[in-house]
Design a protein around this nucleic acid. Structure first.
Lengths: 128, 128
DNA sequence: ACGCTGCTTTACGTTAACGTAAAGCTCGCA
DNA sequence: TGCGAGCTTTACGTTAACGTAAAGCAGCGT
């Protein structure tokens, strides 16, 4: 008796339209079951949606997100597969680390700008 | 006598096509001068291009990137403008901090996966 | 039986960010 | 003087990620 969800319910929770949820299914990112003609979503589908949203916040394409999810799901049995798998993970990691660096750079700039502004503001207000 | 660059030169440096560089000009992100009909890029244009690329790595749209660049360039003179400006900066910062959190989450997951894999790998190789 | 609500499929439309092809200037040089 | 290299404008094409509209089924409350 595990929890299930309707499409409108999930769409609302994640702030997207039902069209979007169906679109992700088309792309193979989620695979809800059916009850008659209606889609029934499991907690697993919901987790996937959460992963998708996180990926989108990072500017990943749906294809890239699919790859990432595949990484989580897959369990490589062969040794050669396993080695290749580790390679893929490391690539992903370096990209993400670069991205993190970019963010930290911009954040630093923003903080500098903010300080500069608040200071300027207090100056102007003291003159008044 | 400040340094200048041709379009092909810059495009090559940033790993994009000349079409892309012209496209960014169309969108108002850079404004090279002309020498005859040819575009001449200044160090300032080059810095802009660097900012654009950084934004793209973060999945920002060109419009968002334009906003960010405007933030760097603008100096708000009015007090009300200044306050609003600070607000915009803070919004940007919270978005970026969320993004950073997302990245750290994924990175942690990746590291976990990687460890799991390397461990599994060494097990398999010891059995052989 | 009727209509509303919520879901469904099908299919054409839209926006962003370029790609790509065509045709024309202009400068240096053999 | 012809020509090739490198730039230019103009314009149509393409892909991703949905939006939006049309038309139909299915249960349920009156």
């Amino acid at each position: 008796m595990t929890e299930t969800y309707g499409i409108a319910e999930l769409a609302k929770e994640f702030g997207v339209t039902t069209r979007t949820v169906r679109f992700y299914e088309d792309k193979g990112l989620i695979s809800p079951t059916r009850e008659g003609q209606r889609r029934i979503y499991s907690p697993r589908d919901r987790v996937r949606l959460r992963l998708i949203m996180r990926g989108k916040r990072l500017g990943l394409t749906l294809d890239e997100i699919a790859e990432l999810i595949d990484l989580y799901d897959a369990d490589p049995s062969e040794v050669t597969q396993l080695k290749q798998f580790i390679g893929v993970i490391r690539e992903r990691k370096t990209v993400l680390e670069g991205q993190k660096q970019d963010i930290e750079d911009i954040l630093a700039e923003m903080t500098r700008l903010e300080r500069q502004c608040t200071q300027l503001l207090s100056q102007k207000q003291n003159k008044k």
